[in-house]
Design a protein around this nucleic acid. Structure first.
Length: 276
DNA sequence: CACGAGACCTGTTCGC
DNA sequence: TGCGAACAGGTCTCGT
C-alpha cells in the first residue's frame, strides 16, 4: 500500500499530532499486545514485548517506506507493505479485526498496527542500519544530484519502471508514484536505464520529486477501502486511468504488465526510443 | 546481472 | 444470486 508520501504522512501525524490525535513523542510504552506474531520480523515475540515495555518514544521518522520510531533504548521500525497502517486510538477503543500489534502508551493513547493482508512487519533493533542498510538514496535528498542520479541509471541496463521500484536503487517509490513520475518525465516505462541522456535523467529526477512532493502535499493517496486520509488519488494522471484520455494529448492511457505489476502510460507523451 | 514466476495474505470487484 | 477469476499501494526467493 503506502509509498513514500503515505509513510511520510503517517510519520508526521505520529510525530506532530493531528486533528484527531496528539503527538506520540515523550510517551512511554506501558503494555504490548501481539495479535499476530507473524507481524514481528525480529526479535522473538516474547523479547519484542519485554524490551518494548517501559521505553519512551523519542522521535518518529521515515526512511524510504520504513516508518522509524526512535525509543529510549532501541529503534522500532515498521514496513506497511500492501495494507499496513498505523493508528493512534484511545486505549479503551474496540480492538479492530485486523489489528496485529497494539502498544498502550501513557496518557490514555495506544498505537495500533493494522494490516489486513499480514504482509507488513515490525523490527525492534539496537541499530536501525541492520534493517535500513540496503536502501538506495532518498529521492528528496538534495545530495542526490542529477549527475549522481544519471550515473546510477547508467550503472544498470534495466527497464525504468522496475528499476524505479527497486528500493536498493532509490528508496520510496512504488507502483503508483513510479507510473506518475515516468509520465511527468515523458519517458516510456520500458525504456532502458543506460540509454538515458543527461537531459532525460534530469527530467526523470525532477518528475520523481514533483510527484512525491505533490503526494505529500495531499497527504498521500487513498484507494478503495485501504488507507485513509489523503486525496492524491484525485490527481493521478495515468495510474488506474487505462482507457481514459491523457490530460495532455487526449490519447487513451494504456495499461500493460511489467514485472508482474500494472503499469500505466500515455503512448503519445511517453514514446519509446531516443526522443522519449 | 536482469527478468519472470511463485509465495506470502485477505478482501473487493468483475464477468458469466 | 452465486461463484470463480482477476486484481490490489510490496518484497522475498528461486530458477533461467
Amino acid at each position: 500500500m503506502p509509498e513514500l508520501p503515505e509513510v511520510e504522512t503517517i510519520a508526521r501525524l505520529l510525530r506532530l499530532g493531528g486533528p484527531a490525535s496528539s503527538s506520540l513523542i515523550g510517551r512511554t510504552i506501558q503494555e504490548v499486545h501481539i495479535l499476530w506474531e507473524g507481524s514481528i520480523a525480529t526479535p522473538s515475540p516474547a523479547e519484542f514485548r519485554a524490551r518494548l515495555n517501559g521505553q519512551e518514544i523519542r522521535d518518529v521518522g521515515r526512511r524510504g517506506k520504513f516508518l522509524i520510531v526512535q525509543l529510549s533504548q532501541d529503534t522500532l521500525l515498521f514496513h506497511l507493505r500492501m495494507s499496513g497502517d498505523l493508528l493512534v486510538e484511545p486505549v479503551g477503543a474496540t480492538m479492530q479485526p485486523h489489528h496485529r500489534l497494539v502498544l498502550n502508551l501513557d496518557g490514555g493513547l495506544r498505537l495500533a498496527f493494522n494490516d489486513t493482508r499480514k504482509f507488513g512487519r515490525a523490527w525492534l533493533v539496537r541499530d536501525r542500519d541492520q534493517v535500513l542498510r540496503g536502501l538506495g538514496p532518498e529521492p528528496l535528498d538534495t545530495g542526490l544530484t542529477p549527475q549522481v542520479f544519471h550515473q546510477r541509471l547508467l550503472a544498470h541496463r534495466r527497464q525504468l519502471k522496475p528499476l524505479l521500484m527497486d528500493q536498493s536503487f532509490l528508496a520510496g517509490l512504488g507502483n503508483i508514484y513510479a507510473d506518475e513520475a515516468l509520465y511527468l518525465a515523458r519517458l516510456h516505462p520500458l525504456t532502458l536505464s543506460h540509454k538515458l541522456s543527461t537531459h532525460q535523467a534530469e527530467r526523470l529526477l525532477h518528475g520523481i520529486r514533483q510527484v512525491l512532493q505533490e503526494g505529500i502535499h495531499h497527504s498521500g493517496s487513498s484507494i478503495d477501502w485501504a488507507y485513509r486520509g489523503g486525496n492524491f488519488q484525485n490527481y493521478f494522471k495515468v495510474y488506474q486511468r487505462a482507457g481514459q484520455t491523457c490530460l495532455t494529448c487526449q490519447t487513451k492511457i494504456v495499461r500493460i504488465v511489467v514485472g508482474q505489476r500494472s503499469t500505466h502510460y500515455c503512448p503519445t507523451c511517453q514514446p519509446v526510443g531516443p526522443e522519449g
